[in-house]
Design a protein around this nucleic acid. Sequence first.
RNA 1: GGCUCGAUGGCAGAGUGGUUAUGUAGGGGCCUGCAAAGCCUUGCACAGCGGUUCGAUUCCGCUUCGAGCCUCCA
Length: 461
Amino acid sequence: MTKLYIYNSLGNQKEEFIPIDSSHVRIYACGPTVYSYAHIGNARMAVVNDLLTKIIKKIYPKVTYVSNITDIDDKIIKTSQDLNVPFKQITRKFEKIYNEDMINLGVIKPDIQPRATEYISDMIKLIQKLIKNNNAYEKDKHVLFHVPSFQKYGELSGRNREEQIIGSRVEVAPFKKDPTDFVLWKPSANNVPGWDSPWGYGRPGWHLECSAMSEKTLDIPFDIHSGGVDLIFPHHENEIAQSCAAHKNNNPKSFAKYWVHNGFVIVDGEKMSKSQGNIRLVNDLIKSYDGEVLRLTLISAHYRQPLNWTISAINQSKNILDKFYRTLKELEKIEIPDKIDIPEKVFNALCDDMNTPQALAELNKIIKNLNTASKDEKIFIKSSIIGAGNILGIFQKNPNEWLNYGRSEILDDKTVNKLINERNKARKNKDFKKADEIREKLKNKGIEIEDKENETIWRSI
RNA sequence: GGCUCGAUGGCAGAGUGGUUAUGUAGGGGCCUGCAAAGCCUUGCACAGCGGUUCGAUUCCGCUUCGAGCCUCCA
């Protein structure tokens, strides 16, 4: 069996992936808070986890991938108040858009996509356990997690409580016993979404939903917990504290064994933020670029590295895809088996902490000797592209459609073919001036022609 | 101030204690009537300074610079 290595943020090193139960691998990825359109950073997380899940599914017979929808949170409430519409209207709308956008990026929908609002009772039960275990306390209608009560707090992010307090820039709420305590439950005003609880009408604090949903859907401990790097602290640290403390277990691995964090997307070298006005929304990008172009751009750097989102990076991805699709076009008549597998070297690269650039490099090496390849080698090349593409989420289209062969929005086929015939007659008669004129004319209509041995093919550019 | 992670050729981006990926852009060539596409070829990259070593871009330390977190964030 292929060994999979992944970098575990819990311990900061690359480790061999050994499932808790090899007959059922369980993965949880922190999903989006649905109050607006998904940006390219959300997409990176979704693509990375989609790929990770696909790799693991190649190795293990049963995998459950859970990624939640956070559909209650203060940003959602604010958006709902600003727009004066019920919060559910917002969350359902953006949840739908998120899923559609991700499909465009070749992301398979998670096996389970739990909504936070549907797990409120589990959250309440979790809080009750924490209170019972003396890890949480009620104060002024809030329930807070008492951080000093959890010995291993800070193990994931590598920070200690004292330093954090010293460096803290946040004002400490008066009802906190300790400055690092965080909210499990908070009161809601009557005009704000909330649920009845033993502590009054209110809503859960951030962090709690993931603890409740991951345990409920996957049971703990599960194998992999993932998300963006920025979630390491405080979100994941707090999840660990809640989930472990509720079960009176001090070991962070009693919650999740491997922690996988993807790097940030930066835009033209700058942090993507509202104030910079440089947020790149998938929903907008998809209008200008094919989903495969965006997906390839997202996997063109290693998932833990920062990814600089630039026009030239996108264009380069487009060029690379064009090249592979041209290769597939060359191999159009080569029949490949129905059941194809990913080439070994490509898969090995992916199993080495999801080294996608290496995987792409290996694939490039495979297609290199195309024109000296025997028929069997051509079958291998084509299978390799398709097989690798299936797992990477690219090369899923028909090459003719991708490259716009025989399609034009400006001229109809008949006109194009008539002009090409005229040109070929002119070429036969060595009337190259006329032939070039016709080629130029077609080019002005966005049509590029390619003279093959026995035929002339054309495409829109 | 504390905690992470980085610094590789024009650009993108892996990797390695000695043979120096891959892509893309550029130079040269082949093919073509000319193109397009493709192919071949080329490029003295590993931030700086010390240390370990027979040998370091790769290991260690320091410096400089960059990104992120410590506040909502994927």
